[in-house]
Structure formats: C-alpha cells, structure tokens
Computed example of a mutant assay.
Amino acid sequence: MDSSDLAADLDVLVPTKDRPGALAVTLAGLAAQDTAGFRVVVSDQSARPAGEDPLVAAALRILAHRGSPVELLRHVPARGLAEQRQFLLEQAGRRFALYLDDDVWLEPGALGTLAGALDELACGFVGYALHGLSYRDDPRPHELVSYEEWPGPVRPERVRRDGPAWWRHRLHNAANPLHLAEKAGADGPWKAYKVAWIGGCVLYDRERLVECGGFGFWRSVPPAHAGEDVVAQLRVMERYGGAGLLPSRAYHLELPTTVVDRRAECYDYVLEGR
C-alpha cells in the first residue's frame, strides 16, 4: 500500500487541556500533511472549550477542507491522563492509532512515513521522539551511548527499570533525536532503532494496543499520575515489539508541562514486580 492508502486507515488521537494556542499549531501541522483521509479525534478537557478559540476553529476547518474528518469531543470531568487516552482509544476504529500530544508540530510527510514504517515493520508501535530545538547547540554524546539500530525485523522485548534497556530513555532528551540522526547518518525515509519508550508521537497497531489492555489500567492508579504512555508501550513492546524512527519529523513546542505532580508513576502501580 502507498502512504496515501495507509494514511486513510489512520486515526490521530489528540488529548488537550487549556492549551488552545499549542493545539492550533499541532492541528496546523496535521493540516499540512501531504496525505489526506486520516481522521482526527480531539479529547478536550479545557475549562473553555477549545473549539471556541479562533485559531483552533480555523485549523479544524482547514483539516476538514483538505479531506480529514475531525471530531472535537468534550470529555469532562478530567479523571487522569490514562483515562483520557483510554477514552480516545475507544473512539478509534481504524487500523492505525496515532497518539499525538497537543504541543507537537509534524513535518509534512510525517504521517505517511510513520504509517509506512509500521506497515513494513509489522510490530506493535513506531514513533518519533520529539526535537527540543532550543537545545540544538547542546550535544550530549554521553546520553547517546545506548543507541542501537534494529538490524532486521523488530522483535518483542521486555524492558524494565532494572535492565540496561531502560537507559535508552535518555536518547530522547533535549535535542538528542537531532544529534542521533546526524550520528546515525539517517538521511533516508527512516531508520528503526531500539527504545525504552517514546513520548508525544506514537503510532500503534490499534488492535494490538487494545489486546495489550490499552490504558484500561486508569482505574488502578491515582487520578493525578504520570507515565501512562510508558506502561502502555512496555506492554505492547513485550508482546509485539516497538521502534523509534530516525530522522524524527516531530518537534516539541517546549511549553511548560501540564503534568506538575509526578509523584504517582503508573509503572509503580501496574508493572512494578511484574
């Protein structure tokens, strides 16, 4: 299948809360993709509905005009990050499900490349680590030592805190994805590498994510929690494998985090000791 056919089998799932300016930039990046037919679902937990913001409304109109249907859904009250992601998963029905944070800009062509890579690799997920370009001149070679490419098929891996693979998470700090691509000579469409997890832009095989429980563990964690995407990805990776892609085509807007209370990590409630 070519990238346009694959993109038409894709749901883009965007959780948002009280960041209309960033959401508008994220949606504008989607509207500028060189493929159409993908569907966008936004779960809005903002105090003021996001659709009332003129920039968000304009981006939604452009997406619809360019052939990508959009559903902007109010989902309140907020019951935690994992519950919001599970709600989005329950709205999805296509083969691919891309979780895209509301502060990420994608290069044109990013969606088609992600979908083509997941189709070829036939694993559980692929993703782009986010560039933090304010750190472009801050190379961190000591954080890149765990970089390892997938030499062939992506295989299932069990990654836990007490193993060396856990330290791969440092590959995605600051502008490390940019420096990784330069180091790896990733100048083609994509190159797959081993990850601990990926934040902000992850494309799942939807059925495999559902089979591994999705984010249904939200009921077993405190409402104020963090690391829900880590748990979901480690579960999928253990059964089906997962990979990061270089060069990354995703850029972090570098706004202050909305997750200020990180005392309750989902890993501790769901995976610790398992």
Results as ranks from 00 to 15, higher is better:
M1N: 02
S4D: 02
V14T: 03
P15S: 05
K17V: 10
A24W: 04
T26V: 01
L27E: 09
L30A: 08
L30D: 11
G37Y: 11
V40W: 10
S43D: 08
Q45D: 12
R48W: 04
E52K: 12
L55T: 12
A59S: 01
A64W: 03
R66C: 05
P69G: 13
E71G: 01
E71W: 01
H75E: 15
P77N: 01
E83D: 15
E83T: 10
E90L: 12
Q91S: 07
D103P: 07
W105P: 09
A110K: 13
L111Y: 14
G112M: 09
T113W: 04
D119G: 00
C123L: 03
V126G: 05
Y128C: 02
L130F: 00
S134M: 08
E143S: 11
E148H: 00
E149L: 14
V154R: 01
R155G: 09
P156H: 01
R158V: 15
V159A: 09
V159M: 07
H169S: 03
H179M: 01
D187N: 11
A192E: 06
K194A: 13
A196H: 15
R206G: 06
E211F: 05
E211P: 14
G216D: 12
G216N: 11
P223H: 07
H225Q: 08
D229Q: 09
V231T: 04
Q233N: 01
L234A: 03
G244Q: 12
S248C: 08
S248Y: 05
S248F: 02
R249E: 03
Y269S: 12
